[in-house]
Design a protein around this nucleic acid. Structure first.
Lengths: 358, 358
DNA sequence: CTGAAAGCGCTAACAG
DNA sequence: CTGTTAGCGCTTTCAG
């Protein structure tokens, strides 16, 4: 945890201060402060000019840290995600950064790597930096970090991973995981598939479970009973995806799989290729997520798109709103997902059981 | 640039201060400071305990901003990249973050989006935050930002995009672009290809030019004259890659292309697929870069791997070193790249011109 | 219209 | 061994 050396390098700390500017412009620091902050106070234009010139000449940059001591905003927002290398999160970060940038904030992005211990250390460090606000996507959906922020009274919004009722009344932006599981399964059912496996990953986060519930609901509605061995999980890795691919009902008509993470899906696809199997002939497939390669693999990949951009935008906008109005609360924002058709679903002649259970 | 509202929300600013802790522990603020910083000063263990307990109870977190006023480090490092959405940069960021984290720093990641104006605004904001150091990958290889950092005496290291001699004597970590162009072309030449196009992108950065020089050198050595129309460039986008694909010498024996950015390569591959063309039968291909999908497209993709992890690690380590020893300088670090074979290069019977030009 | 001065939270002499 | 105190750079009353 330690490591930050005590002394700043000799190089730092020589930045021009407001006092230098005042001296250089032959006025007082108060005046400089007023000029530099465009405060409503009438000053001789000539003086104003002189101050500006002096600041320019000295390369003066105001010290946000000092400013914050007086209880003003620091201009730093933090984003803490559990999988920084995952495009899904990256896309949200890009959007958050853009919004924050426009509002004059700088964004500190941290990666907990799904590790609650690391997450805690990071939160503590952020708190010590007196960040103005935080967007948090908790590792493993733990609630401790939120509690820490709550206690420090730092405005925050939870992104993507709900904490349910464990932390009452928190602001949340996410997408509809139940729906994504549901429409993915639905797409396979509509095409006539009946043996549909669900490929999850070992994680205590509710999202995966919600997707599974959506999947279960869709199958139940279609009158399809889920058989043992259809719901598969494993650690989150390409290799695990490859291994689990062996357990899929490959080659059987109406066989399909619903993958819930692109890393797992990639493993499955590579396994199929290695074994000389083809999709959708030997196995139909739908993925929840839109990695860069969805439109590159042939014959295409049906998938469920989550509104990453919108989520990032909404989370950032919400946080900014909360900074303006500390008492602002908004109902949880759960954005819809969208099914994108693709060649990985094999249309099957429906065996006369369609429109059944009536 | 403005936008940061003046007043911090009422919610903030109520954090416990060192004074609160002192009061609660029934001692002086000096003692608290010493205890909390593990300074070498002998204190009655009992007192020490009381202070720690009080801090714990009040949820005290020390204010890094206030600390920095005294000329100490703030604990913030900044990373400024030009393409935050690009995996190449993301991978480096992940590594930088990990290294910084271990050293007790928090990392602010910013995205200039290849826009020098935005970059300047960001640098100014970072300066005003009094960051302890910065890793910079300049948009379009401009040098202004480095000059700004230089002037503010903020230790920095330039990553990936060299500024050449424009800024003398700066610390740099990058990879060998000439080499990557060279070995990519070499791989195609070795396989017997002779009509080798170079697909770049419009950018003033030296990297692309260096890759082109490597390509040119390899062809020259092999006695292959570059014909007009072989060197193609365009804006950096998938669509542009698609468009330029039409100009490639598809279908001719010994036809190949060297792509310098995965986005362009993706466009090319998609164009081939749309037109019912296949690789490497109709066109051989090598890519500089390793997007997630290199091992997913079939029959594989030959590519040049850049040492992203090592670069990130080296840059972060170097910056930390510079923070410790302000006068520390290291020779520019240019890491080697590595060719990774793949099914996208069609081996051709070499037409007896091999080992020529002797 | 402008300047002096009181702190914001913290560190580090300097006195006890 | 421990407490008092002078600032770090800045904002903002309050007096000129």
């Amino acid at each position: 945890m330690a490591g930050v050396t005590e002394r700043a390098g000799d190089t730092a700390g020589k930045a021009a201060t407001i006092r230098d500017v005042a001296a250089c412009a032959g006025t007082s620091i108060a005046t400089v402060s007023y000029v530099l902050n465009n405060k409503s106070r009438y000053l001789r234009p000539e003086l104003r000019e002189r101050v500006l010139a002096a600041a320019q000449e000295l390369g003066y940059v105001k010290n946000a840290a000092a400013r914050s001591l007086k209880g003003l905003q620091r201009g730093i927002l933090a984003v803490l995600v559990p999988q920084f290398g995952n495009n899904f999160f990256t896309r949200m970060c890009v959007e958050i950064e853009a919004v924050a940038q426009r509002a004059g904030f700088v964004v500190t992005i941290c990666n907990s790597d799904e590790n609650p211990v690391q997450e805690r250390a990071i939160i503590e460090r952020l708190l010590s930096q007196r960040i103005d606000g935080c967007i948090l996507s908790p590792a493993l959906s733990r609630t401790e970090s939120a509690a820490l922020l709550e206690r420090a009274r730092v405005p925050y919004v939870i992104l993507e991973r709900t904490m349910g009722t464990a932390v009452p009344d928190h602001d949340f932006v996410g997408h509809d995981n139940f729906q994504s599981g549901y429409i993915a399964a639905q797409a396979l059912l509509d095409a006539g598939h009946r043996r549909i496996a669900f490929l999850g990953w070992d994680s205590p986060i509710a999202n995966i479970n919600d997707r599974e519930q959506g999947y279960r609901a869709a199958l139940a509605e279609a009158g399809v009973a889920i058989e043992p061995g259809w719901v598969l999980t494993g650690s989150l890795s390409e290799d695990e995806g490859r291994r689990l691919a062996d357990r899929l009902p490959v080659g059987q008509v109406t066989a399909a799989v619903l993958a819930t993470h692109h890393t797992m899906a990639k493993g499955v696809l590579m396994s199929l290729q290695d074994r000389g199997l083809r999709w959708p002939q030997d196995l139909s497939l739908v993925l929840i997520g839109t990695p860069e390669w969805v439109d590159l693999v042939r014959p295409g990949l049906a998938c469920v798109e989550r509104p990453e951009r919108e989520m990032g935008h909404a989370a950032a906008a919400l946080l900014l709103e909360k900074l303006k109005r500390p008492d602002y609360r908004q109902a949880k924002l759960v954005l819809p997902t969208r099914f994108i058709p693709g060649g990985s679903i094999r249309p099957i002649k429906i065996p006369e059981t369609s429109g059944a259970n009536a």
